[in-house]
Amino acid sequence: MINLIVILISAIMLALLLVWWRWPAFRVWIEAPKYSMLRRERRFDDQITGTRTGNELFVDGGHA
């Protein structure tokens, strides 16, 4: 059974590597989240920067 698990994990990893190597669209798709995460992060930072000196945009316990 353990041999099966080892083979299974290895096969899944190998398949992923092959897809990544052979399929540029997959590479773009799989790497996209790391950029969109930063984009969202910047939007939040921008909003915080814009409101940091005042409290009018923050309501009790939440963000307006």
Binding site: F44, Q47, F58, G61, G62
Partner: peptide, 11 residues
């Protein structure tokens, strides 16, 4: 920016 979701700072 509009659609930014709220964050529960109290929690």
């Amino acid at each position: 920016l509009g659609a930014l979701p709220s964050i529960e700072y109290g929690l």
